[in-house]
């Protein structure tokens, strides 16, 4: 058997954007987050943010109608999130 290289600890950084009512409620439009290894998809990231409590818990609670995008494409709960991704959370759209 070949010897395995020791696992390096890498900080997987992602950019998270918030729009409209969410941006106002959370008080931020963009942030960089070091992704814990356990977070692999949009649902996991949302749960991580809910874990911050306060406004985060209320605004992003599973019962809230929050939409998401990964790398500027519509995403769902099971859409994977990986190093370098741009993830966005926002309310249902109201353009046109």
């Amino acid at each position: 058997m070949t010897e395995r290289a020791p696992k390096r600890i890498i900080n997987h950084m992602i950019t998270v954007l918030y729009f409209a009512r969410l941006r106002e409620t959370l008080g931020t439009g963009t942030e960089r987050i070091a992704l814990p290894a356990a977070v692999r998809d949009v649902e996991g990231l949302r749960a991580l943010l809910v874990g911050r409590g306060g406004e985060w818990e209320q605004a992003l609670a599973p019962s809230r109608p929050v939409r998401a995008a990964v790398n500027q494409a519509v995403a769902h709960g099971d859409t994977p999130v990986a190093d370098g991704d741009e993830v966005a959370f926002f309310p249902p759209v109201t353009g046109g």
């Binding site: 309310p91 759209v93 109201t94």
Partner: peptide, 26 residues
Amino acid sequence: MDYLKTRAPFWKKEQTGGGERWVEAR
């Protein structure tokens, strides 16, 4: 137009006599 209304990421915030409010999706 129908798809734009539900899929393109735009959000309207209205200014009314009672202050500002985000428009809810229909």
